[in-house]
Structure formats: structure tokens, C-alpha cells
Write a protein that binds this DNA or RNA. Sequence first.
DNA 1: ATGCTTGTTCGGATTCAATTCGGAACTCAC
DNA 2: GTGAGTTCCGAATTGAATCCGAACAAGCAT
Lengths: 204, 204
Amino acid sequence: MARKPRQARSRATVNAIVEAAFIAVARHGPAAATTRQIADIAGIGVGSLYEYFSNKEAIFAAMSERFVSDTVAMLQPRVPELVRKNIRDAVLDMLVLFREFLQENDELYLKCARHAFAMDFEEYLDPVHRLLLDIVTQHMMRHPETARVRNIPAMTYIYINGGIFSVVRHLSEQNPPVTFEELSRGLADMVGHYVDQELLLTQQ
Amino acid sequence: MARKPRQARSRATVNAIVEAAFIAVARHGPAAATTRQIADIAGIGVGSLYEYFSNKEAIFAAMSERFVSDTVAMLQPRVPELVRKNIRDAVLDMLVLFREFLQENDELYLKCARHAFAMDFEEYLDPVHRLLLDIVTQHMMRHPETARVRNIPAMTYIYINGGIFSVVRHLSEQNPPVTFEELSRGLADMVGHYVDQELLLTQQ
DNA sequence: ATGCTTGTTCGGATTCAATTCGGAACTCAC
DNA sequence: GTGAGTTCCGAATTGAATCCGAACAAGCAT
């Protein structure tokens, strides 16, 4: 972002640019989305893009940030409910929520997420990582018996990276080799079985 | 590939182009790697690129294919040895092999794999998927007790997508939140615990 | 209201990379 | 050694990203 928006008008412009970029990328992919398209969709001149973004990559970065913060905002209010459930159901619920989120607005987010990794998306995953760790922590406080589970940071790391990637890839595939139900059940059991086995192995 | 190479000379050119592309991408990333750079590194004229590749994306596609087939070639000879081991050791071995493979040649492959997803890399993963399924099948034949494990296709899908992504991302991070040992142990236990728990749940 | 300053928008001009094209250089079978 | 098929080249074309200076709007003091 080259300049900070002061007036309400310009803040609206910045917003319009990011939203236009989502539409353009969903339509043509990040490589084929041109600055002219983005400007046209946003209803502004090309030059205006550069008032707030130093280049096209900066727009993509803003999209990644927006996507991540929207994801967190979508999940956050469900946290109290999630941490009350058993682990498998909590995971299944999160996956369904995530799928619905991706498919909102005619799959706008999914169509972008498919190419997310072309936009250094991973750089901005940190808030999601923190949220997941927070959920795990709260869950453990409510289910104290799970405190014996080992290697939690690594498992969370694997789960967030691997889980998001698997789901996005799965939803993007024309004919995936497994159904979404099998996939989500697999992810839920992957977590659930791990915890169960850990409890078994560490019992006194 | 716009045209099929007939003479030995041109096959060498195609090869030089793909190798030059790896170097250019490792150096500058896929977006900033120009056709001129690739041509210069390959020691040919820009025009020649288009004799064999219809555009830059086609070169990236060839890189992905090469990377995947090299990965398979690297793993294939170790399969007999891998299927003899217990699951956790087999996974750990594969991860170490994969890491060493990525770090060969001054991390040439890792530096490209980091951006792999900008090049529609996933499209070409199929051979790896087949190899993994093959390893699983062979492993099950040698350890018949594991035949009771359910949902194997989905678990393989998750494991290959999630596992590759987690490892590449981890190796690319400047200061990762977990060590490679924790990560690989996590992945090994994720598989191992899953199998153990399945055996427990399905025993008569 | 009026003039002044600062913030905002615009779109043509510039720059730079991808791709094309027409011909030169090479290879090989005869 | 010839020529038909193949391979290579790099200047010219094309089109997108980015820059820039003029025009326009908002806020503010008088």
C-alpha cells in the first residue's frame, strides 16, 4: 500500500479494488487478471490502483490478508460451541463451515483460493494458525484428560497446512478420487485417532 | 510442447531449457523469471524456446512433470526396503529421503517447489499419488494384519497433499515454529497412530 | 461564498517482457 | 555435395504493468 487513505471516499476505493481483484482473479486466475480488468470492475481508472498499492502483488497480498481475516472472523464466533464438542465432531464442523465459507458468493473465495499459493498466501496464514492453537488450548482446558497428548505444536502445524491444502485442492478438483465426506471423515479421524492413541500410550 | 524434437541436438535443447528454467526460477521465482534469462542460461536464443514450448507456462508444466518423475525415480528403488519396515519408520525414511532430494544441488528443487503451486504443480502429482498407493498396497501385503484399516484412499489423499505441502512449506520457512524432527515425527505418528487405532477399533 | 491547500482520480505515455516470424544455419540421407 | 527437413536465431510486434502530471474534489480558513 503506497499511501494511507484519509478520506472516506478513498477508503471505499481501496475496498472496491480488493473486491474487484477477487472477482477478476476468480474469473481469470491471478496470472491472467490484468490491472485494467481490476480497475474496470472496481469502476476506477488504472492509475488509481497505484495510489494505494505499489504493484499488482500488493493487491494480491491484500486479498490474502482479507481472506485470512474473513476466515478467522467466520470461525471466531463458533469457537465456544466448537470447544464443547468432542474432537471428531469439532473437526467435522470446522470443515463443513470452511467448505460453506469457500462456496459463498458463487464460490468467489474458492476460485481464488485454488490459486492462493501463487500469491504467497502462506505468508499470511499466521492469524489462522493462532486461532487454531487457541481453539486447541481452550478445548484442552475443557477436556483436561487430553492434556497428556504430545507434540501439539507440530500436529497443529501439520493439520492447518495439510488440512487447508487438502480441502481447497479437493473442492477445486473436477472429479476428486474421494468424496468430501470421506475426506472430512479422514481428517477428523486423523486427529481423533491421534489423540485417542496418545491417551492410550501415556496412561499411567 | 509446440513441436516434437526429432534430432538428438534438439532433444538436448529441450533438456537444457527445462534445466535452465529450474535455475532461473530458483533464482528469481516464477513470476520474475523471464524468457530471456531462461534462454541465456540454456545458451540458446529466445526464439528457440517457442520451438518446443508453446509458452512460458508450458515450460513450467514441463518442470512440474520433471520434478514429479524425478521424485518417483528417487523413491522407486527404495520401495522394497520401505515396505519391509514398520509404518512409522517407513514414513520417517520417506520424509528424510524427500528432504535430501529437495536439498540436492544447492536446494535447486526446494527453491522451485516453494513456488510450485504457482505453476499448477498439483495437476501433475498423479504419479506420486499412484506410487504412494502402490507402497501402501505392498506394505499391506507384507503386514496382512493392517488390512482392516479403513478409508485408505482418503487417508492417502490427505497424506500426500498435506504431507508434501507441510514439508515443502516447512523447509522454505526462515524460522519455522517447529523443527523438522518434530514435524516428521508428527507425520509418522499421524499415520502410525491412525493405523494402530484402526486395528484396535476393528479387532474382533 | 471565495480562494487556497491538500487529497484523490484519471488515462495517456513509458517501459519491459512474452511471443511471433522470416530467414540463416545445420543435419542427414541419398 | 545437395536439398529437404529440422533447428536456431534475434529484431519486430504486442500487450500488460507501472509512472506521471494534469484535472478534479474536499476540507478549511477567511
